[in-house]
């Protein structure tokens, strides 16, 4: 089932095309890693796909009415804002806003998935940065939309929480949903994503399975690094090694 279709999506900011001519599709069951160096246009692409940024071309989600879109896709912004010291459970419950009343079961599922049951009564603003990040992921999960768009969801998380988060994404995909997550950790992307999109200067320069996409040529051209890639009994292992001289 198709959850998102982008057709020739272009975003201009101050006259510069920060996303240009991106066409892609997201189907149920996929965990897509959106890769690219700083300034490649990852955040702009995700926001435009949701219709949160003015854009040219078409994004299927942007055509929906706001309430309908909120039930079709959840969005986890990079800025981790929790303005008020609400209890963790109440913050997670904000994900139920598009659905009206009820939804306690969904809130409980989201709390359990992110391992937050013990923190449920704590004021969210009193938690550490990593814990707040988990609360906000749980908020997006509680929305229980088929598609989750996440902007650097693993930034600032400890290794266990990073792996746990990626596993949650894999579970969502297995349950018939899909995730598009921008990531800087190419190792996490290689291990957990079913597909990778690579953005460079606003253009989608690669779209395919991790092993096909993460080649030495692409890494050199887009990321200016050299890396080690191996298939092990534990799955694919990817380790950036060194910068390439410019």
């Amino acid at each position: 089932m198709m959850l998102l279709r982008l057709e020739d999506l272009t975003v201009r900011r101050g006259g510069v095309a920060v996303v240009s001519g991106v066409s892609a599709e997201v189907r149920a069951g996929e965990v897509i890693g959106l890769l690219g160096p700083n300034g490649a246009g990852k955040t702009s692409l995700l926001r435009a796909a949701l219709g949160l940024l003015p854009h040219e071309g078409r994004a299927s989600l942007a055509l929906l009415a706001p309430g309908q879109r909120a039930r079709a896709a959840a969005w986890l912004p990079q800025a981790r804002e929790i303005a008020w010291g609400m209890p963790v459970e109440a913050v997670v419950r904000l994900g139920r806003l598009p659905h009206g009343a009820g939804g306690t079961a969904a809130v409980e599922r989201a709390l359990a998935r992110m391992g937050l049951q013990e923190l449920r009564g704590r004021a969210a603003t009193a938690l550490s940065g990593g814990e707040q990040a988990r609360v906000l992921i749980a908020r997006a999960l509680a929305q229980e939309a088929p598609l989750l768009l996440a902007d650097e969801p693993t930034a600032g998380l400890d290794p266990e929480a990073q792996i746990a988060t990626m596993q949650v994404f894999v579970e969502l995909a297995a349950a018939g949903g899909a995730v598009v997550a921008s990531l800087h950790d190419l190792g996490l992307a290689a291990r957990h994503c079913t597909r990778l999109w690579v953005l460079s200067k606003g253009r989608l320069v690669a779209d395919g399975a991790p092993r096909e996409v993460l080649t030495q040529e692409l890494l050199a051209k887009v990321f200016h690094i050299r890396a080690h890639f191996a298939d092990t009994p534990e799955g694919p292992v990817f380790q950036p090694l060194a910068r390439l001289g410019s």
Partner: peptide, 20 residues
């Protein structure tokens, strides 16, 4: 009230929750 609650998560997240 609903819109202000959603705004707790920032303007972008609130908009994505369907708040105008």
């Amino acid at each position: 009230g609903r819109g202000l609650d959603a705004l707790t998560l920032g303007e972008d997240a609130a908009a994505s929750l369907g708040v105008s």
